[in-house]
């Protein structure tokens, strides 16, 4: 296997030829914020716009998940231009999310908390007007809760359900601000062809999909939080 050497944040590393910068960095303990990235996916989704990095010789910051490593590449994950783009993308994202970590079963394991800390910004940003979707929460699955309001549309659950498991219960529907991850006909999870394997819950970076037993939330009785 051919490898190339590159520098990320001053650290010299080797990576497989054709590997994307994001994975080269993550494999070497350098964190770059990301939500939609899946190593097994054939094509990067490049949907979350959080993994911006600066590459020496390039005028504009690039998304690390789509940029392939090159011999002698010098990457800076902390460049002001890259951080500015990532921060704005993140703030826009949380502007339409209900932020209630104290009552969220995913608090502590939530990627959003991790990213906010990494980018040194607050989850409750004031820069953009809050615009919530206020969609109903689906408690129907015996295993997990699906709260579409907390969904960041990263598409990880959709990919896992379809490509890895070959089931294809979840998918995107509607358009623009109304876009959401749902089942065929927007039916409750329990009435869909979901097999309750829970793989999507494991894949979810936020609290949109969360196991019920974490905080003993009983079917339909739990707080919306």
């Amino acid at each position: 296997m051919k490898t190339v050497s590159l520098t990320i944040d001053g650290k010299k590393i080797r990576a497989r030829e054709g590997e994307k910068v994001l994975w080269a960095a993550l494999d070497n303990g350098i964190y770059i914020p990301n939500l939609c990235a899946l190593h097994d996916a054939l094509e990067p989704f490049a949907a979350c716009r959080l993994c911006f990095v600066e590459v020496e010789g390039k005028k504009q910051p690039v998304t690390a998940c789509t940029e392939a490593v090159e011999q002698g590449m010098v990457v800076n994950t902390r460049g002001p231009g890259a951080l500015r783009l990532a921060r704005t993308a993140f703030e826009l994202l949380v502007a339409s999310l209900p932020v209630d970590c104290a009552h969220c079963p995913s608090s502590g394991s939530c990627e959003l908390q991790k990213i906010a800390a990494h980018l040194s910004i607050k989850l409750k940003t004031k820069r953009f007007r809050k615009l919530l979707r206020e969609l109903p929460i689906d408690y129907s699955s015996p295993l997990f809760i699906y709260d579409p309001n907390k969904c960041v549309l990263c598409g990880r659950c959709v990919w896992i359900c379809r490509e890895r498991l070959g089931i294809g219960t979840l998918g995107f529907a509607h358009r623009g601000f109304d876009r959401l991850v749902t089942t065929f006909g927007s039916e409750p999870i329990s009435e869909s062809k979901c097999l309750d394997c829970g793989e999507c819950v494991v894949a979810c970076p936020t609290g949109a999909l969360a196991f019920k037993d974490r905080q003993g939330i009983k079917s339909g009785l739990g707080k919306g939080g």
């Binding site: 089931i167 294809g168 219960t169 998918g171 995107f172 529907a173 509607h174 358009r175 065929f184």
Partner: peptide, 13 residues
């Protein structure tokens, strides 16, 4: 031969 959700996805789009 595609998941039904894909049809629904296009119809709602």
């Amino acid at each position: 031969g595609i998941p039904a959700i894909d049809v629904y996805s296009v119809v709602t789009f």
